[in-house]
């Protein structure tokens, strides 16, 4: 008797589990779709805000796995997701090899964050070479004379610096190390640039979220994250000296000043990196996130749904982007992107 009840219950649950699959498919046919994407954790805060808005607006839900630019590239190349997001743009030959189209969708900034007791945000001043030396282990403690010279009024502790870096294949790392290679010859000939590099010691966090989590957790640590993560988690950021010699605070304005120097019109497939930009107010590490879509998608309905989502984000997502201190793309660039999409994605 008992076993019969158990059997019926199990059968009911299984039918429910399988049955709702049909329900899901019917729902999809009725126009409330689900598209999947994966990649950059840099863009995740604003992408998830756009996705929430878009679901209210159109009913389509965007299931985005924030796993790092490297993962996004490989998943969209393998066809396991409908779109990929990466902060390191792919070159035209790699795009052609995989039949992918690429376009930027938003600009943000990468900010050094620290966890020093009693230090307020935006007070600590660092330069690119000093940052490179910290990450290479040449500057080992917070009260090192080099740091003290940049921060005369600050009372920095005599504590060892714990560096936090990305453990996954990260476009944020690419932009960060690209910047360090531009400003520090020792870094360029050492770890160099890339979605992952040979870090000297330090803890590895998964995604922007992981780095933020470790910096919040470990005293006297330093890490690098997208600015939205600083705001969302009340973290302490440091000022960076830009190419013009000014210590610039991270904000939508200083990111926009850096983005203004970008020459999108002449970048094939929008392949452009904007670190260490010129300009008095330009923030030194600004970066864009690029969306990857198949030029000849297998599932046209899903591809069109994804394009509709990004059109919505580009044309109506400026408010959400500004709220999180990202820089929405200027109208001229949006038009250039829409022309590109129309020409390339069938």
């Amino acid at each position: 008797m008992k076993s019969r009840i158990l059997a019926v219950a199990a059968a009911a649950l299984l039918t429910a589990a399988c049955g709702t699959n049909e329900g899901n498919q019917a729902q999809r046919a009725a126009g409330s779709q689900q598209i999947t994407g994966a990649g950059s954790t840099f863009v995740y805060p604003v992408l998830s805000a756009w996705a929430a808005d878009y679901q209210k607006h159109s009913g389509t839900s965007v299931n985005y796995q924030s796993i790092g630019s490297g993962g996004g590239i490989s998943q969209v190349e393998a066809g396991t997701v409908d779109f990929g997001a990466t902060d390191q743009p792919l070159k035209s030959d790699e795009l052609a090899k995989n039949g992918l189209a690429q376009f930027p969708v938003v600009v943000g900034g990468i900010v050094p964050v620290v966890n020093i007791a009693g230090l307020a945000s935006g007070k600590l001043k660092l330069t690119g070479p000093v940052l490179a030396d910290i990450y290479q282990g040449k500057i080992k403690s917070w009260n090192d004379p080099v740091i003290a010279k940049l921060n005369p009024g600050l009372n920095l502790p005599n504590a060892a610096i714990a560096t936090v870096h990305r453990s996954d294949g990260s476009g944020t790392t690419f932009n960060f190390t690209h910047y360090l290679s531009q400003v520090s010859p020792a870094w360029k000939s050492g770890p160099g640039e890339g979605k992952t590099v040979a870090w000297t010691g330090g803890v590895g966090g998964k995604g922007n979220e992981g780095v933020a989590a470790y910096v919040k957790q470990l005293p006297n640590s330093i890490g690098y994250v997208e600015y939205a993560y600083v705001m969302q988690n009340g973290m302490t950021c440091a000022l960076l000296q830009n190419a013009a010699g000014n210590f610039v605070a991270p904000s939508a304005d200083s990111f926009a000043a850096a983005a203004a120097t970008a020459d999108w019109a002449h970048a094939p497939d929008f392949n452009l990196v904007m670190t260490n930009a010129a300009g008095a107010n330009a923030y030194p590490i600004a970066a864009s996130t690029f969306i990857l879509l198949h030029k000849q998608p297998k599932d046209k309905a899903k591809s069109n749904a994804a394009i509709a989502f990004f059109k919505y984000a580009l044309e109506h997502g400026q408010g959400q982007a500004k709220k999180l201190d990202y820089v929405p793309l200027p109208d001229a660039l949006v038009k250039q992107i829409e022309t590109y999409i129309g020409a390339n994605i069938k």
Binding site: A16, A17, C18, T20, N21, G23, N24, Q34, S61, N63, Q65
Partner: peptide
């Protein structure tokens, strides 16, 4: 199984 931030009752996803 990975994970899914939305409601999904389907074992195929």
């Amino acid at each position: 199984a990975l994970n899914n931030q939305f409601w999904s009752a389907s074992l195929a996803q």
